[in-house]
């Protein structure tokens, strides 16, 4: 089948088949990336521009490497230092770049919906590398690939997502993706870090971490932003770690073979115990980084195939 999308703006518009298609292709790129010669030509001759309006090291590097391994010409634009400061609007920036005929545009922006807006104005394929609190689709896809490879399946798993759900685009995309693939999702965190309307999401919500972790297959930890630590959302860092930080004692409530995930960068001693994060028997955090490159290669490859054709049924 063909991947029926022009952009990758979020998990929301993707169906289970499209998700599986990305993951299947990504599996083959994992193999490629482990060889000595890590090169393919799927994006040869195409131009990929990374526009990051928000600081990022890991995601930007991952997208850059993914593009380069597939033969694209990759350009990184440091948007924070550029025209935005001179008052140019997002749409004008997009139109300017569009005139340079890029084929793939990878965008991160601090405002929800900004990447959708940009995608309406350009002719190329747009990949959302995180917009505000909305979505971060490639993170959810790499998490899904990591789970699928560790657990042998991506359905009927009990998956706990812990921490600052309210402000996390990673959590949004993961809830959507894991729900579409028919998993049971538990959200664990203090009520101040839960999004509104959470009761309508088809998930189970826990404010007790031990109860929430009881019998789960996967534990996904989220990063707690520094600026949320003092008083506003939680009383203090140490109380948060005591109640919601993942350590081996709390992990003991999960299944014996439960895996531990974290999208990075980690705050050791805030949301996760450092020793546990490094425990290669439980933690798949390094695998997540590896899967990230493969998933981004797969996503860009599939979108590039739709670039210059108008296959029937291409959706956003």
């Amino acid at each position: 089948m063909t991947f029926p999308h022009r952009h990758l703006l979020g998990i929301e518009p993707l169906g289970p088949a499209a998700i599986s298609e990305i993951l299947d292709l990504a599996d083959s790129y994992v193999d490629l990336n482990r060889r000595d010669i890590k090169h393919a030509d799927a994006l040869a001759g195409l131009t990929q521009i990374n526009m990051f309006f928000e600081n990022s090291t890991r995601t930007q590097a991952s997208f850059e490497l993914a593009g380069k391994r597939l033969g694209a010409d990759v350009m990184n634009m440091a948007m924070q230092a550029s025209s935005i400061k001179k008052g140019e609007t997002l749409i004008d920036t997009a139109m300017t770049l569009n005139a340079m005929h890029p084929d793939l545009l990878v965008v991160r922006h601090p405002h929800s919906g900004a990447v959708d807006l940009l995608a309406q104005k350009v002719n190329c394929a747009v990949l959302n590398a995180g917009d505000g609190r909305h979505e971060h689709p490639t993170q959810a896809l790499l998490d899904a690939l990591t789970i699928r490879r560790a657990k042998g399946r991506l359905h009927r798993l009990n998956i706990a997502i812990c921490g600052d759900i309210a402000h996390s685009r990673v959590a949004r995309s993961n809830i959507l993706l894991l729900g579409k693939m028919e998993n049971r999702i538990r959200l664990i965190g203090p009520p101040t870090l839960m999004p509104s309307g959470i009761a309508d999401f088809g998930v189970e919500v826990y404010d007790d971490m031990r109860a929430g972790l009881d019998g789960v297959d996967v534990v996904m930890m989220l990063r707690l932003q520094r600026e949320r630590m003092d008083g506003g959302f939680i009383p203090s860092e140490r109380e948060y770690y005591h109640r919601f930080g993942l350590d081996s004692e709390k992990l003991g409530y999960a299944k014996d073979d439960a895996i531990v995930m974290h999208p990075g960068p980690m705050n050791r001693g805030v949301e996760i115990d450092g020793t546990l994060a490094d425990d290669i028997n439980r933690s798949v955090i390094q695998e997540q980084v590896e899967m990230g490159v493969a998933v981004r290669m797969a996503a860009m490859d599939l979108l590039a195939r739709n670039l210059h054709s108008e296959p029937a049924g291409v959706m956003v």
Binding site: E12, H134, R169, P195, S196, D200
Partner: peptide, 15 residues
């Protein structure tokens, strides 16, 4: 407005 829609869209919301 706070609720599922605002949370799905990742928009800051008010009850």
């Amino acid at each position: 407005t706070s609720g599922k829609f605002a949370s799905l869209r990742g928009l800051p919301s008010v009850s």
